[in-house]
Write a protein that binds this DNA or RNA. Structure first.
Length: 269
DNA sequence: GAGCGGGACGCACTTACCTCA
DNA sequence: GCTGAGGTAAGTGCGTCCCGC
C-alpha cells in the first residue's frame, strides 16, 4: 500500500498519511471478482444449512476410527505433506477433512459460506494451518490481497483446504494487515503531533522574544520584514539589501531561531 | 430507465479454541 | 495441573455492488 514518507517528510511538508486508502484498494481489487458468478444458492438455505437435519452416508465414529487406523497405515507414506500435517485438534472434524475433500469442494462451489460445523452439530474446533500452508497463503496474499473464486478454488485445492477456509484466512489476514497499518499510522501521527507541539512551543517563544525585542529596540523593526534574514550560526539579523555589510547587522540574543532558508546566504555573515 | 429483490462478497465485530509463559 | 494473555480460525450481521426481472 501507498508509500509512507519519513516522519520528517510528513511533518515538514504537510500530513499525507492516506489513512483508509487500504480500504479503497481492497474495494478496487474486489470489483473484478464479481464478474465471475459462481452457481448460486438460496440465501436462507445457506444461512440455516447447519441447523437442518442432515443425512450422511459416512461411517459412524467407531467405524470411522477403525477405518481411519487402516487408512493411516496404508496411506501414510503417500499422503501429501500438506494434508498430512494440517490438522484439526478434534478427530471428528479431522474425519470430515480427510474423508471428504472431493465432496467438500463440490459443496463449496454451491456456497462459499456454508458453516464448517460438522453434521452432528458438534462445537467448532480449531484448525491450525501448517507452516507450509501459511507460507503459501502469505505468498498469495502478497500477490493479491483478495481472491476471485477461481483463485480461491485453486488455492484451496493446492492446500487441501476448503475454499471457505481460504476465504476466511484472507479475510482475517486483511484485518490483521489493516490493524497493523493502523498502528503504524497511529505511531506516525503521534510523532507528528509531538513535532508540531514542540514547533508550536518554539514559535510561541520566538514570538515572545520578537515582541520584547520590538519594545526594546524599534529601530531595525522599521525595516521591511521581508528584507531581514538571520543566520542561525552567528545569530545575526541582516538586511537583505545590503548583505555582507557589517554596519547593517544586528546581534540579537539569546537564540532566536528566526531564519528563512530561501533568502539566507551564508555569505551574509 | 427506475425500482426491487436476491445473491455474492467484504468488513467489523465477536466468539471459541489453542498455545504458551 | 491451573490460569490468564495473546493469536487466530470461524461465525454473524450489515452494507454495498451487481444482475435479472
Amino acid at each position: 500500500m501507498m508509500g509512507y514518507g519519513t516522519t520528517d517528510d510528513l511533518c515538514n511538508t504537510g500530513l499525507d498519511l492516506e489513512l483508509g486508502s487500504f480500504h479503497a484498494e481492497q474495494k478496487n481489487c474486489s470489483q473484478p471478482d464479481r464478474l465471475f458468478q459462481p452457481i448460486k444458492k438460496n440465501k436462507l438455505a445457506l444461512k440455516y444449512d447447519h441447523m437442518l437435519p442432515s443425512l450422511t452416508l459416512g461411517p459412524s465414529e467407531e467405524v470411522y476410527r477403525s477405518i481411519r487406523k487402516k487408512i493411516d497405515a496404508d496411506l501414510q507414506p503417500q499422503a501429501s505433506s500438506l494434508s498430512a500435517v494440517s490438522s484439526f485438534s478434534n478427530s471428528s472434524i479431522k474425519k470430515e477433512r480427510e474423508f471428504g475433500v472431493g465432496e467438500e469442494v463440490d459443496v463449496e462451489r454451491v456456497s462459499s459460506r456454508v458453516s464448517d460445523e460438522d453434521e452432528e452439530g458438534s462445537p467448532r474446533k480449531k484448525l491450525r494451518l501448517t507452516k507450509e500452508q501459511s507460507v503459501i497463503l502469505e505468498d498469495n496474499f502478497k500477490d493479491h490481497s483478495t481472491l476471485n473464486p477461481k483463485q480461491k478454488q485453486a488455492l484451496a485445492e493446492q492446500l487441501n483446504l476448503r475454499p471457505r477456509q481460504v476465504e476466511v484466512w484472507f479475510q482475517n489476514r486483511r484485518a490483521r494487515s489493516k490493524l497493523k497499518q493502523t498502528e503504524v499510522d497511529c505511531e506516525l501521527l503521534k510523532k507528528c503531533c509531538e513535532t508540531l507541539t514542540s514547533e508550536n512551543k518554539r514559535l510561541q517563544k520566538e514570538l515572545q522574544e520578537l515582541k520584547s525585542l520590538k519594545l526594546a529596540s524599534p529601530v531595525y523593526m522599521q525595516l521591511p520584514a521581508a528584507t531581514l534574514t538571520m543566520c542561525p550560526s552567528c545569530e545575526r539579523i541582516c538586511s537583505g539589501s545590503d548583505q555582507g555589510s557589517s554596519t547593517s547587522t544586528f546581534t540579537v540574543g539569546p537564540k532566536p531561531n528566526f531564519y528563512n532558508p530561501s533568502t539566507h546566504s551564508s555569505a551574509a555573515c
